[in-house]
Design a protein around this nucleic acid. Structure first.
Length: 415
RNA sequence: GGCCCAUUCGUCUAGUGGCCUAGGACACCGCCCUCUCACGGCGGCGGCACGGGUUCGAAUCCCGUAUGGGCCUCCA
């Protein structure tokens, strides 16, 4: 039987990073097994629904690179069918009316247990399970009822969801049994925590997918990083392409304990991905990021800066400040060694070709003349030209800036 | 409070009774490379929550304690 899983967000706001990781595991599993991956919006609680959320969730998923099979479905769409089933349960004694609502009658003896794909056998005593409401007094079925019902209707074989659902599982299993349905396989994946050890969620540690997109992370890097939160391939493999992830993923290697989100590691990994990009790909991603942030610097020059920054930054949000001096004037800094800067301006003014290699030769000649160390002699020049002690390569920067502007800044700083 | 889950370097993890004087990666520190930054190279710091068992032998199995988390909603 071909596996079928579902990603089941509730439309109460943006898609947060913990949810994406859970969906990623569903997706990786389905794609690897050649199964199907459904997207079902769990909107039984209409009171908390946020209008734009449905579109936003899909857009975020698409950006990360997670797709789904068939049309997006809504839990509310099966409400009628769920209600019918609830009445059947009432008819055969598995449920009863209570104040206009319908409650599921839990077995009063024995235990419910299942073998969780990531946590092993889990067992609950039936007598401790409360008779939960499955249809509200206003007629809307509740999550704990529709969810398993939809799983039957959709033919879901593997329920891969967050560990918070462990305690809902015994009730859902009892409901499925009362309905005479087969049980899916369950896999409860660990949460992702913030630095404070508390679970990352919409209400806590607000880490939406959009925030990562904004910060200039690459989807492939985010996916790689997320996959490694709670799962590993072996003891030494870290960087894995989407293809490799799909090929190697397995539920058995998902760990049961929660992980803490480490931004520093994500930054490092994103830097790895950024540097591995082909120049044209890099320029493409960079250009898209700038466009999304309404930065309208001349495209040609932006492309020209790409090779200067590719080795230097680990996410695009660092780009504007890093190369701003190439697009805007810089304030002449104080405390610059005017002698070196003036000498540099004089020499550079004589240069026949304004090109990085020639500029470098010329400046190194100057350094020798002055009897200085390169690092100390280049510092004031860098400061005068870029306005900062940290910048892309000096010679390449000078070339890009152009002779006139470069000389103007050097002379301004020397004055 | 009840029930359930979890617990290996600061962080992500490898580890399924002997291969472990616990391996890798990020972070951090030092050195090298070097026009700054970054990359890269080399080295270092650093961990099996605690206590009992079981066993010739335990990070690995069992029990307890502690800590953290989740659920106990006519939320999902």
């Amino acid at each position: 039987m071909s596996p079928k899983v579902r990603m089941a967000p509730s439309p109460t706001g943006f898609l947060h990073i913990g949810g994406v990781r859970t969906f990623l595991f569903n997706w990786l599993f389905a794609r690897q097994q050649g199964g199907e991956c459904l997207l079902r919006i769990e909107n039984t609680d209409t009171s908390r629904e946020v209008a734009e959320a449905v579109d936003q969730i899909q857009e975020s998923l698409r950006w990360v690179g997670i797709d789904w099979d068939g049309p997006v479905t809504f839990q509310l769409d099966t409400a009628d069918r769920a209600r019918e089933l609830a009445h059947e349960l009432v008819a055969n004694g598995h449920a009863y009316e209570d104040d206009g609502a319908i409650r599921f009658r839990q077995p009063k003896e024995g235990t419910v247990s299942w073998v969780d794909a990531v946590r092993g056998e889990i067992e609950f005593r039936n007598e401790l399970l409360p008779d939960l409401v499955i249809v509200r007094s206003d007629g809307r079925p509740t999550y704990n009822f529709v969810s398993p019902v939809d799983d039957i209707l959709d033919g879901i074989t593997h329920v891969i969801r967050a560990e918070g659902h462990v305690s809902n599982t015994p009730s859902q299993i009892n409901i499925l049994r009362a309905l005479g349905a087969d049980l899916p396989l369950y896999a409860h994946v660990p949460d992702i925590n913030g630095d404070d050890g508390k679970k990352l969620s919409k209400r806590h540690g607000a880490a939406s997918v959009d925030l990562f997109r904004d910060a200039g992370y690459l989807p492939a890097a985010l996916m790689n990083f997320l996959a490694l939160l709670g799962w590993s391939y072996d003891d030494k493999t870290t960087i894995m392409s989407r293809h490799e992830l799909i090929e190697r993923f397995s539920l058995e290697r998902v760990v049961p304990s929660p992980a803490t989100f480490d931004y520093k590691k994500l930054d490092w990994m994103n830097g790895m991905y950024l540097r591995a990009l082909q120049p044209d790909e890099y320029a493409h991603f960079l250009e898209r990021w700038l466009r999304e942030h309404d930065i309208d610097w001349p495209q040609q020059r932006v492309f020209a800066t790409a090779p200067l920054v590719q080795e230097k930054i680990e996410k695009f949000s660092q780009y504007p400040d890093f190369v701003r001096f190439l697009f805007e004037d810089v304030a002449p800094p104080d405390g610059v060694d005017g002698k070196v800067v003036a000498a540099a301006a004089d020499r550079l003014a004589q240069l026949p070709t304004w090109e990085a290699a020639a500029i470098e030769d010329d400046l190194r000649g100057l350094v020798e003349e002055l009897g200085e160390k390169p690092r100390t002699a280049f510092a004031p020049i860098r400061l005068a030209v870029t306005g900062s002690k940290i910048s892309p390569g000096l010679f390449e920067s000078l070339e890009l800036l152009g002779r006139d502007e470069s000389l103007r800044r050097l002379r301004a700083a020397a004055a």
